[in-house]
């Protein structure tokens, strides 16, 4: 009986985590993989793994959200490795086209140009910098959680994020 209640509470917690993280996780994975189809697969896989490993979660080592993004990161990096191994069988990662993206709200020409500039600036960043930006702004992780996911110290994580942000700012504001 108590076991069933515990399982029920665990499921509710996982469902809440899923609801609050689904879109953010997808955005983060897509930033890493730059391939919608692969990002969907890896997002689903990350949630499935998280569900299977619920019991291995230790709150003392960080928040559930950071734990989930850690799982997603490993899954995404494994996907990158797999893609590298079968490079000849898989097409080059598709660049995300602004026209095909689902964007909320209306858009005018200036805004479109601005978005394009941001996308180009993001594209100019290294994969690690893009990952930092995604973890910070899409996942909304604190520096401590970010450090936990990346396996670096908290201060180092903060420094890395700051540098990436500065680089992004410069790239966005750079004259075309």
């Amino acid at each position: 009986m108590a076991d069933r209640e515990q399982k029920g509470a665990g499921w509710e917690r996982f469902e809440a985590l899923y609801r609050s993280s689904r879109d953010d996780l997808y955005a983060y994975v897509l930033t890493l993989l730059r391939d919608r189809s692969a990002a969907e697969d890896v997002t689903a896989l990350a949630f499935e793994r998280a569900y299977a490993r619920q019991r291995s979660f230790d709150r003392r080592r960080g928040e559930e959200r950071a734990w989930l993004f850690g799982i997603a990161r490993n899954a995404a990096l494994d996907e990158l490795r797999r893609r590298r191994r079968s490079a000849s069988l898989v097409a080059e990662p598709q660049e995300l086209e602004g026209d095909t993206l689902a964007q909320p709200g209306s858009d005018d020409e200036e805004l479109a140009q601005r978005r394009e500039a941001v996308r180009e600036a993001l594209g100019a960043l290294s994969p690690r910098e893009r990952e930092l930006i995604a973890l910070k702004f899409h996942a909304g992780l604190t520096n401590a959680e970010l450090a936990n996911v990346l396996g670096v110290s908290e201060s180092n994580a903060g420094t890395l994020v700051h540098r990436a942000v500065q680089k992004l700012r410069r790239a966005v504001n750079a004259p075309v």
Partner: peptide, 8 residues
Amino acid sequence: LASVREWP
């Protein structure tokens, strides 16, 4: 970044 965020 919110303006260029990808959604599933």
